[in-house]
């Protein structure tokens, strides 16, 4: 069974790469044609992103965005109100930063575009690393905030 699964799974990925190159060509052309309209460019980029990004990477990006928002909220709160229990600020802020770093590395390792570089690391292995690292990070942060 596994060889069968692997066979078809490799095939669409190979097919997807030429498809990608073909789609990138019109994107460039559209850019050159209506470069003045910034809104158009943004919409184009967004559409491209929505269309071509695998669902898992989208999920990763959503999580990354969420982490950035949480980190920014904590940072501005610290700027406005003050850093009195400084260890608490460090713990809260570094939890988001650390989680961001871990998630970003998971995104790099599992992104189909980087497949060539991470041939030896399976997605399951990368995810397991991510979970282990995150748990460790949460433990340290909770411990540090006391």
């Amino acid at each position: 069974m596994p060889p069968k699964q692997r066979g078809p799974s490799t095939v669409p990925s190979q097919t997807s790469t030429p498809a990608k190159s073909s789609t990138s060509a019109p994107a460039k052309s559209s850019k050159s044609t209506s470069s003045t309209d910034a809104q158009d460019i943004v919409r184009q980029v967004w559409n491209n992103y929505v269309k071509k990004t695998p669902q898992r990477v989208k999920l990763l990006d959503a999580f990354l965005g969420f982490l950035v928002v949480v980190a920014a909220l904590q940072f501005f709160y610290c700027l406005i109100v003050g850093n009195f229990p400084f260890n608490a600020f460090l713990a809260g802020f570094s939890a988001t930063v650390g989680q961001f770093v871990l998630t970003a590395s998971l995104r790099i390792q599992t992104n189909p575009e980087n497949k060539k570089e991470f041939e030896s690391i399976s997605h399951e292995r990368a995810f397991a690393d991510f979970v282990f690292g995150s748990l460790l990070l949460h433990f340290f942060c909770v411990n540090f905030i006391n």
Partner: peptide, 14 residues
């Protein structure tokens, strides 16, 4: 320490 509640919240939201 009530001042730390925001950041405790930050950790747990994360």
């Amino acid at each position: 320490i009530s001042g730390a509640w925001v950041w405790i919240g930050g950790i747990w939201v994360t």
